[in-house]
């Protein structure tokens, strides 16, 4: 496993055998090494397709006859679709569904630094499926979380908005906090850009933090492959008036952690994530935003930002 050699001559239809996406400034290449497997990209991920480039990670994909057996130490069980194992120094993600029992529908393996990957799709499930998106959720997001945890950045359950000046506002909150509501209110302004109404990546630049849109949007289906310098962080709270409360860095870091997607099975990654929040909350002003869900909150924030 992970003896990856990419043969681009397997199928001369380039569009069907290779795809390149870039999320959070991290290019990802997927290559079909199986003449029977055509690739596609789905949904909002299409907005993140890029021209062929030098990727941070190259992933091969092929059909295979998978078995129930996994050799290796289980590191983490999501309690749902996936588990992750440590096997021969690699990370192995196993995806199952109650519909098909214990036989996984997909297994994805990655080397230690997540620079090389291999996806095997269970042939009986996918042989008749036509073109396939091998990184199908939640693998695409799990992959990104692991890439970020290796010193690149973090992802937050949040809505990201870029204003007319090109500055970024991050509205953080768990499900039901008002992220999509916030995105729709700001969208009505017509002069701002919504990077995502549900998931935002934040990375460190030389002297600032930058937020990036992701394809993992919320009910508003709002996402964009853009980025902006991060100016303010707001933790959303439904209220009866618009009110801002400045948060201390410890409080803010704890709230960020609760709205992040930590790689609980990777100690170094978890340590990096915590250190990242330490830096973020030392640099970027953080507030609790109690808000009324109408246009008044936009003006309220603008006034307080002057």
């Amino acid at each position: 496993m992970i003896g990856l050699e990419i043969d681009s001559t397997i199928n001369t239809d380039r569009n069907a055998t290779r795809s390149f996406v870039s999320i959070g400034g991290i290019p990802i290449a997927t290559v079909s090494t199986d003449p029977q497997l055509s690739l596609k990209v789905e949904g909002a991920m299409n907005r993140f397709l890029v021209e062929e480039t030098e990727p941070d990670i190259t992933i091969s994909a092929a059909l295979d006859d998978l078995s129930d057996d996994v050799n290796g130490e289980m590191l983490f069980d999501s309690g749902s679709l996936w588990q992750v194992y440590r096997q021969n120094g690699n990370y192995l993600f196993r995806f199952t569904t109650p519909h098909f029992g214990n036989t996984p529908y997909k297994i994805a393996s990655f080397n230690q630094d997540f620079s090389i990957g291999e996806i095997r799709l269970h042939r009986p499930y996918f042989a008749e499926a036509g073109a396939v998106y091998p990184l199908e959720y939640p693998l695409d997001e799990l992959l990104m979380l692991n890439l970020l945890a290796r010193g690149r950045g973090i992802e937050l359950h949040s809505c990201g908005i870029t204003d007319e000046a090109g500055e970024g506002f991050l509205f953080v909150g768990q499900s039901g906090a008002g992220k999509t509501t916030t995105a729709r209110i700001w969208e009505k302004m017509g002069t701002v850009k919504i990077l995502s109404d549900d998931r935002i990546i934040v990375r460190r630049e030389v002297d600032a933090f930058r937020m990036y849109g992701t394809p993992w949007h919320g009910e508003g289906e709002l996402s964009a492959p853009s980025s902006a310098p991060l100016k303010r962080i707001f933790f959303l709270k439904h209220g009866t008036e618009n009110r801002l409360t400045r948060l201390g860095k410890v409080e803010a870091a704890a709230r960020l952690f609760s709205c992040s997607f930590p790689t609980f099975y990777n100690t170094d990654g978890l340590d990096f994530t915590l250190s990242f929040f330490d830096e973020m909350t030392s640099t970027v002003p953080c507030y609790e935003l109690s808000f009324i869900p109408d246009q008044s909150v936009v003006e309220f924030i603008r006034e307080n930002d002057r």
Partner: peptide, 26 residues
């Protein structure tokens, strides 16, 4: 939410659109 244990909505690029539908993942 933190471990991506639940599917995203059908409107997203997620299993709701492929494994969920194409191969009927629950």
């Amino acid at each position: 939410e933190a471990v991506l244990g639940a599917c995203k909505t059908g409107s997203t690029a997620g299993p709701a659109s492929s494994p969920c539908n194409a191969i009927a993942v629950g």
